[in-house]
């Protein structure tokens, strides 16, 4: 069964088409990433799916059904830039959100899993940005959901804090959960996602597994070679060509650097703009 099916979704704000006739689906058990720059329409899309906003047109099915209470029980959500109550501590915050669901997982284990054990008694307002976000992710997990929505969970965090969150997300995937991840970090999508949908000005311009997208739209790799005579650059369309070129050089170089295409290049190719 598909975890999410979205058909011809459209949302208009004044003269901005925030979401423009978007169609896609998310398989159960995969990490699906909606990748796009600021204002692309990611939050609008995800919040329509979650039932927080109404669509102007289109259809959303979750586990084959329209959103209802039974399905809400299976969903866990971290809204973009979410802030919890200032003066509840970590444990209270999770217990508080757990009380809104019928099902709930062991809060102590959850705290342990996201690595906030030491901060258990700390008030929300005294947590660091990264800790707040970890707690936000934990809040999305209190009801042991099978479908998890995370809207830009790592924006503004340092690399270490970002890693922590990535680890939690990977752990969730291992438990068989479906994860809908919104991000404008291409390395995040590349690292985590099984499937990436690239969104630009309300439209999904490409959607596939990350390496396929790179294969399809990336301009291969650039090999920069420094020899005694100076710098030289070669272009390779794929990995095979990379190997061939390096072989042909017969180790007559001082330094070699291979720059492979990434989702950033894909985005640039598809839209003529950077990811920002």
């Amino acid at each position: 069964m598909k975890a999410i099916e979205v058909k011809n979704l459209t949302k208009v704000y004044g003269n901005i088409i925030a979401v423009d006739n978007v169609t896609f689906f998310v398989e159960e058990g995969e990490i699906f990433s909606l990748l796009g720059p600021n204002g692309a329409g990611k939050t609008t899309t995800v919040e329509i799916i979650e039932g927080i906003r109404n669509a102007d047109k289109g259809e959303v099915k979750i586990f084959g059904k329209n959103l209802n209470d039974e399905i809400k029980e299976k969903m866990g959500i971290l809204p973009q830039e979410f802030q919890s109550m200032e003066r509840l501590n970590v444990k209270e915050t999770l217990e508080y959100f757990a009380s809104f669901y019928r099902k709930s997982i062991d809060i102590d284990e959850l705290i342990e899993m996201v690595g906030l054990k030491e901060k258990e008694k700390e008030l929300y307002k005294n947590l660091s940005g990264g800790q707040k976000r970890l707690l936000g992710v934990a809040m999305a997990l209190v009801n042991d959901p099978s479908l998890i929505f995370l809207d830009e969970p790592t924006t503004g965090l340092d690399p270490k804090a970002r890693r922590n969150i990535w680890n939690v997300i990977m752990e969730m995937k291992e438990k068989g959960k479906t994860i809908f991840l919104t991000t404008h970090y291409m390395e995040e999508a590349e690292y985590l996602a099984d499937k990436v949908a690239i969104m630009h000005r309300g439209k999904i311009v490409a959607m596939d597994e990350p390496y396929r997208l790179i294969e399809k739209y990336g301009s291969g790799a650039r090999i920069i070679v420094e020899t005694v005579d100076g710098k030289k650059e070669f272009k390779a369309r794929d990995e095979k060509e990379v190997v061939r070129i390096i072989g042909e050089l017969q180790e007559k170089y001082e330094k070699i650097e291979i720059k492979r295409a990434n989702l950033e290049d894909v985005f640039l190719k598809l839209t003529g703009e950077g990811l920002g």
């Binding site: 830039e81 979410f82 802030q83 959100f97 669901y101 019928r102």
Partner: peptide, 14 residues
Amino acid sequence: RKRGLLKKLLTTSF
């Protein structure tokens, strides 16, 4: 609303 707490509430069956 600003903090997203109402959003969270909307996504539960509470």
